[in-house]
Amino acid sequence: MAEFLSLHDAVARHVEDGATLAMEGFTHLIPFAAGHEIIRQGRRELTLIRMTPDLIFDQMIGAGCARRLIFSWGGNPGVGSLHRLRDAVEHGYPQPLEIFEHSHAAMACAFEAGAAGLPLAVLRGYVGSDLPKVNSQIKFIECPFTGERLAAVPAVRPDVGIVHAQKADRAGNVLVEGIIGVQKEVVLAARHSIVTVEEVVDDLEAGPNACVIPAWAIDAIAVAEQGAYPSYAHGYYPRDNAFYKAWDAIARDRESFAAWLEEHVYHAGGAA
């Protein structure tokens, strides 16, 4: 049953060094506040899982939290590279980063399989691609009914899943609106889940088919206003596209990144 905790306490309780950690939000509702809290608490040796690492994993990788990355598109959307990710892959800085690289279709299926309690996901994918040659987590199987060759990837079943959402009610039920990505799948696939929300309300006012995650499927809820900034929360604030562009220069250089981290994460209390 969802327990209301401060973001600090939610992270301290559930995220351990060496954990496999999925933090989702497909461009939208990216849990930046939680990522910054993990950086502040100095977690190390994490296996980070996200379809699009985005700035949040660029920051966590640059801060030295990550040992391994499972992903499917590692750029700064609409801008270019994630320079901290590239520095880790190309130069082993601040430490070597082992990567397991997928396509979006495969990762989406892997999250869904995790939520469904299955060991693997099956898809019509990776035909002719070199990705299976460099990622041992991509195999091919034969359909027992038709004989068709299909791709298989292991389900994502992280120790911890963290997502951001618009709101929770006082019982801890959560409403996700807009681009919902794999938010529900991550919460259900993870052993423990943390949901950060913009606000707690009396009534979710959710329609019958809305994306609602029940309180009893969540471990911890933490209020984090602007917790997805500089990504966005549909109905609350827009994506700060200008910051995404500015990030290119900040992250390109090790020293300017370190200075940014110092000012905006280490010395920024719980704020994003």
Binding site: S72, S81, H102, H104, A105, R124, Y126, V127, S129, L131
Partner: peptide, 8 residues
């Protein structure tokens, strides 16, 4: 950046 949605 990688493949994203393109391979499928």
């Amino acid at each position: 950046p990688g493949g994203g949605g393109a391979p499928e």
